[in-house]
């Protein structure tokens, strides 16, 4: 009798925690979305008022590296969804973390290749946008990777309602960053 009572209150507690943490995470994501939306608004303003784009004397950077990083972050999100379906199997999580690191390496290569082409941060508005936006995004990716590693350590100790909750919320953040990168990829590099 007592054990069932305890179980019931526990699960109600978990339910409450679940709702609270997802409300919190959604509000936080709205905040992050506004940060990136502001950047995008600034970009749109420059882009729509510029007579030619990219600005005179500049060519668009090659699509190769950004496409690769888009592929990486897309695959990482797919792996994460697989992991969320069956949390006992943490290979999906490991794949997400590895792909996340590869994404960061490709971004670093991108900055390096821009530099070797003579495109510096201070070379004008378009390079400013490329560098600043990818920096801000990368800073969030680093934070998300730290969250993923923390989640990995927790999952190793066993899957509980708490870790499921953590996985759900970390996942929301990770997918969000994937979407943000996709928007940046399309608006900055493709069109």
């Amino acid at each position: 009798m007592t054990t069932t009572v305890v179980k019931k209150t526990l699960s109600k507690n978990d339910q409450g925690q679940e709702i609270i943490s997802s409300v919190g995470m959604i509000v936080a994501l709205v905040s992050f979305a506004m940060l990136f939306a502001t950047l995008m608004m600034g970009f749109a303003m420059f882009r729509l008022t510029a007579p030619v784009w990219p600005p005179a004397g500049m060519t668009k950077p090659s699509l190769l590296l950004p496409s690769l990083s888009t592929l990486c972050i897309f695959l990482s999100s797919v792996c994460y969804m697989k992991f969320e379906k069956n949390m006992a199997d943490n290979r999906g999580l490991i794949a997400t973390i590895v792909l996340g690191f590869i994404f960061m390496i490709i971004q670093t290569l991108l900055w390096h290749s821009l530099k070797t082409q003579g495109i510096y941060v201070s070379s004008g508005i378009f390079p400013s946008i490329i560098y600043a936006f990818t920096w801000i995004h990368a800073a969030h990716i680093v934070a998300a990777l730290a969250m993923l590693i923390w989640l990995y350590r927790n999952v190793q100790k066993g899957v509980t309602p708490t870790t499921q909750r953590q996985a759900g919320n970390t996942g929301k953040f990770w997918h969000f960053l994937g979407i943000v990168w996709f928007i940046m990829f399309v608006t900055i590099f493709v069109i």
């Binding site: 940060l35 990136f36 600034g42 510096y120 941060v121 201070s122 508005i125 400013s128 560098y131 600043a132």
Partner: peptide, 21 residues
Amino acid sequence: LPVLGAGLLLLTFDRVFGTTF
């Protein structure tokens, strides 16, 4: 607040890294 945050980040980049926003 994140809107101000974005503006301040870009202003800081202008001042520290030499972007031209």
